[in-house]
């Protein structure tokens, strides 16, 4: 009881309730955007995400079949609630046409990797060639002691392939970052 509020008419109850505060799970999100290919559009998107304290884990950009319209796929690890906020703010950008968080929508995603692997011995060459065939990759460049392999697929597939190549020694590699499209008939189209 406080003495500063002396009104007897104020009824009293002991336990105030607490408002639920939103806090989501932290996980990897895959967000696709259709954007107008205007000056600074990528910088704007990157600034917005960095401004939330998040890092862009993966990014791919390319022009679509429509002139001046690009498609971007972003991978960001973050709290569901804050990502929801990011998506809403991305939608507000003047140059974004559509923004969708595909994480919980059935979708297809693919990535391409180029891997340069040491193949100094004939045995290594045989072995790497066999692995490449199993993973439906292609050898796109050959030197006296390296193969450069192109492989596409999901995260899991590419990671498994890289794991198997590790013992040979990976000299260099580059990944494109994912591209993703919603499976037709799944979820709602929205902007």
């Amino acid at each position: 009881m406080s003495d500063t509020v002396g009104s007897a008419q104020i009824s009293t109850v002991k336990s105030p309730l607490f408002r639920e505060v939103r806090k989501g799970e932290v996980r990897r999100h895959i967000i696709t955007l259709t954007v107008r290919n205007e000056l600074g559009v990528l910088a704007r998107i990157a600034t917005l995400i960095a401004g939330k304290g998040y890092n862009i884990e993966g990014l791919s950009v390319g022009e679509t079949h429509e002139k001046g319209i690009s498609r971007m796929t972003l991978e960001v690890i973050g709290d569901d609630v804050i990502i929801d906020q990011v998506v809403k703010q991305l939608r507000k950008l003047i140059d974004t046409l559509k923004v969708k968080d595909l994480t919980d929508t059935p979708h297809v995603e693919r990535e391409l990797a180029l891997v340069k692997v040491h193949t100094a011995t004939p045995r290594a060459r045989d072995e790497v060639l066999r692995l490449t065939e199993i993973f439906r990759g292609r050898i796109v460049d050959v030197s006296s002691d390296t193969y450069t392999i192109e492989i596409t697929g999901t995260d899991d597939k590419i990671n498994a392939f890289l794991e198997l190549l590790k013992p040979f020694g990976i000299k260099e590699m580059a990944r494109t970052g994912k591209v993703a499209l919603r499976r037709e008939g799944a979820g709602q189209e929205e902007d």
Partner: peptide, 17 residues
Amino acid sequence: LEDGKKAVEAETMYLVG
């Protein structure tokens, strides 16, 4: 509050239910 006192303890509030 304006008189410098700490305002209100939860118990004195109107909260119902």
